[in-house]
Nucleic acid binder design. Structure first.
Lengths: 221, 221
DNA sequence: TTTTTTCTCATGTCAGTGTTATAGCAATAT
DNA sequence: ATATTGCTATAACACTGACATGAGAAAAAA
């Protein structure tokens, strides 16, 4: 029977360890392939057979490695939020906190429009196959640590009147997410440019949070 | 004989007309059944075979009547927006325009949470089967006529500083839709009550639109 | 009345999906 | 050398959307 298999006496190259490494690499490769498939051909094309065919293995491998399609999609879900987090971190910091918040929102929008298929995986859980675990959903909130800290800074400097940075951050998230969602579903294609309205929406919300006149905002008189 | 049908020569009821009426009734019945299936078992269960089984006919009937699954879902899409429009019209009017706007938003949220499967059909077009026609998407905007007119009233009375009621209405829609969407995807289950944050989000946005202190809003000091 | 044409629908089929049971292969362990 | 273990390809099952075929009834024509 299997004793402590990981202990490879003098062996620097334990078989199990090597196997695990290989498994990890293979796992990453599979996720990358699935990611490409998702980005290139959309949600509909993301089938276990297609992934297996792309990787060059059988579907059994995918099932032993991820358990089910839900398991695989779960990882893509987390990967999507990691990408989003990275996109937000790439926003150049600014001394003007409000402008920085606006830039974060714009980066969020650009990411969502450029990676609409990922965005669908993250927010359109329409079937059990695309419904992530509760723990994953909770974990996804950590992608907004930058937003939360910036909001907290605004509260500290008394730019915002509210006191709960998490709550305010979620409000801003909802505003941005809502506009992006309607853009992606084709409801915002007509009339004025969507980008312009997006900016105006953010500025309006920030104005409501500051309770004071906001720069670059149209004035009543 | 088999001649018992409605074809009285002097008959007021033309055969074709009766046939069409029957078709229309049948069509409505099928949509009702599909609607029930959707509400009770979700998007995943909405298959042509299940609908046919529920109605008691073959799938061929559905295809001759709706062309494809897209065609059937299209009608459900429109029906969903009609239901939403009806829900908004059910909101009791108020003299206070801002409170009325808030009530509209709350009704929107209640509708979305209570009919989450319909909401998914309307806003989670993840596959070609659930992607409505462009004309349907444009038509859906008419469900918000009440919102637009109320916003216009706010502009007329100079409560709002903006001038384009359509734009402002879309901003409000985006805010409400975003919060509801995050609620439905399970991102807003923790910490404070979602309903409370929802109200706060609306009030904040309206405050940003009015550029003045908003009642029932926490003050800085 | 009889025949022909037209229309509708049930059946069966095709390609595709997620998932799994079976069986085979390679490498350890005994 | 044999037994055991872990991994994987194959093939199958129960589904799905969509459609071609053919049967049967109703309507029109004779």
């Amino acid at each position: 029977m299997r004793k402590n298999s990981v202990i490879g006496k003098n062996g620097v190259t334990d078989y199990r360890a090597a196997q695990d490494l290989h498994q990890q690499a293979l796992r990453q490769g599979i996720l990358d392939d699935a990611s490409n498939l998702l980005l290139r051909e959309g949600l509909q094309a993301l089938s276990m057979r297609r992934i297996a065919q792309m990787v060059g293995c059988s579907t059994t491998v995918l099932y032993t490695m991820f358990g089910s399609k839900q398991g695989l999609v779960n990882e893509l879900y987390l990967k999507g939020f990691a990408m989003l987090c990275q996109a937000l971190e790439g926003v150049p910091k600014s001394d003007n906190l409000l402008e920085y918040l606006i830039a974060l929102g714009q980066a969020y929008r650009v990411f969502a429009l450029a990676n609409s298929t990922y965005y669908a995986v993250m927010f359109c859980q329409t079937s059990p196959e695309f419904t992530p675990t509760k723990s994953c959903i909770q974990q996804s909130w950590s992608s907004f640590v930058l937003l939360v800290s910036t909001v907290q800074a605004c509260i500290d400097v008394e730019i915002f009147a509210e006191d709960d940075s998490q709550e305010v951050a979620k409000m801003l998230w909802a505003v941005v997410h809502g506009h992006v969602g309607l853009e992606l579903t084709g409801h915002f294609t007509d009339s004025a440019s969507a980008a312009e309205r997006f900016n105006r929406t953010i500025r309006t919300t920030l104005a409501g949070l500051t309770h004071q006149q906001f720069p670059n905002q149209k004035q009543r008189k």
